[in-house]
Amino acid sequence: MKVKDLELFSEIINQKIYIWKNNHLYLVNKNNINGNRALIIKLLAFAKTNTFTLIKHESEHALIVPCPKNILIYIEIKHNSKIKAFNLSSVESLLSVRQTGEFVYKLYTGQDCPYSFITFKNTEQNSSIGRQTSQKTVVSPELLFKNESLILDSISKLDRKSVKEALRGLTHVQIIGEIFANNNLIRGEKDTLISFIASLTQTVVMSGLPAKEAYELEDSLIQAIELRPTLPLFTEVIQEIVWIFYNQLLDHRKKAVSSISERTSNYIQNHIREKITLSGISSALNTPKQTLNKAFEAKYSITINQYIRNKKICKAKELLRANILNLEDISKFLSFSSKSYFVQTFRQITGFTPKNFQKKNNNTI
């Protein structure tokens, strides 16, 4: 735990940082004057696990960063801060807050932050603000956050059914996102969407989508959202964004599977005379055996070992038709362990012994 690094960071940004640990609140920089500790402890109650919490209280903001072992880090963000958070109508501000949270997490724990989603809370509002359904009930923004982990997990597994179920849980939501920027409802929706896009981006990158491709998609979606003066029904936008990321990852996986299987097939063709093993292919292509098998079976519907045997027997047929080499020579030429094993394999695949195949072929000619 690098408390001294946090203390230095507190001085650099000229803001107070507190640590909540074992039911006690500690001020990181002893040179600072303690703030309203009772208020801070009250605000810490809004913290959520696995997400940053950005709180607006009167004219100030605070960022809460949850760490392992139920430790919370509370960062004041005042108007003179070097963190661009007091103007939340700016995308740059929102991204700066997220980067600050990730940086503080790593400073304190020494590990990369495993989350990037931001939850917003305006303490001036006694309840979550939302449009009403036809039954005149107010829908809580927590519905999105409760479904977020399920949506992200389902996308990483490319589980279409689970994605649909998670999105179905948002069907009755008319508005998600609190008013936290100049009482601007559209701004609240946009910033919530931008945070969600950031989480989706991180998920697909961790699931194998190239970072450049993922961040280009993120930038284009954020730009599209920012340029729109109004938004359609909020849940429709959420669903559209989710399926965009899902399909992007799916297309990448399909291309990757095709590439791996084709490289495997080419390797086998080019080394057909040798003793080919799965370990040898894995080493040559620098790809785990499990990945090779899964990709190959997805495209060819047979295992790699079956494919090797089939290709060797195809080559053996050519040699038998040429009638140049005897069975002993053919078995050695194709690196079978013995003549008897070659004959056995040939019969299993073709239904004929090599000699019967040769006779049948000669009679046909």
Rank of each mutant, 00 (worst) to 15 (best):
T49W: 05
I281R: 00
H61A: 09
K146P: 04
S259A: 11
Y341E: 09
K339V: 02
Q344W: 14
Q202E: 12
S195V: 05
S335I: 11
V204H: 03
R37E: 15
V204F: 09
K48N: 14
T230C: 04
E124Y: 07
R321M: 01
N326R: 03
K161T: 12
F196Y: 13
T303L: 08
S128L: 08
T109M: 02
S156C: 02
K4R: 11
H79C: 03
E318K: 10
S199V: 05
N126L: 14
I75V: 14
D153W: 07
N36V: 02
D251K: 11
K311N: 09
V104R: 00
S279E: 11
T100H: 04
L152V: 03
V65Y: 04
I365P: 03
I304E: 01
E7R: 13
L143F: 14
T49Q: 14
H172F: 10
P141A: 13
I77F: 05
L152F: 03
I324Y: 10
V173H: 10
T137A: 06
I155T: 00
I40P: 00
S258Y: 04
A316H: 01
T192V: 15
K106F: 06
T264I: 07
L250V: 00
K190R: 12
R347K: 15
L144V: 01
N182D: 07
I244V: 13
L43A: 01
T353N: 08
L334F: 09
F120G: 03
K311P: 00
N286E: 13
I75A: 06
F103Q: 14
K2P: 05
G177H: 00
I365C: 07
K48H: 15
K21S: 14
G280P: 06
L158C: 00
L72Y: 12
P210N: 05
F333R: 13
P66A: 02
R253D: 03
L327N: 13
I308A: 03
N22Q: 14
I244S: 01
T53N: 00
L95W: 05
K359W: 06
Q99N: 15
I186A: 09
I83K: 06
S340E: 15
V138R: 15
K4L: 10
N323A: 08
D329Q: 15
S258K: 09
F196G: 05
N247T: 02
I12A: 11
D329A: 14
P354R: 06
I225K: 01
N247E: 12
Q344F: 13
V91R: 08
R37N: 14
S338K: 06
E58W: 02
E328K: 15
I349K: 12
S279N: 11
T171N: 09
S199W: 02
T235F: 06
C314A: 13
S127V: 10
K157E: 10
I194S: 04
Y18F: 10
L43N: 13
V257Q: 09
L27D: 09
T230P: 01
R131V: 04
R263K: 12
D5I: 10
K82I: 11
T133M: 04
Q125S: 11
K299Q: 12
L292N: 00
V139E: 12
I222F: 05
M206E: 13
P66N: 07
K339E: 15
I40K: 08
Y18V: 12
T100W: 08
T345A: 14
L170G: 01
I313G: 00
E148F: 02
E262D: 04
T49V: 13
T203Q: 04
S81M: 10
E236P: 02
I308Y: 03
I225F: 05
N183Y: 03
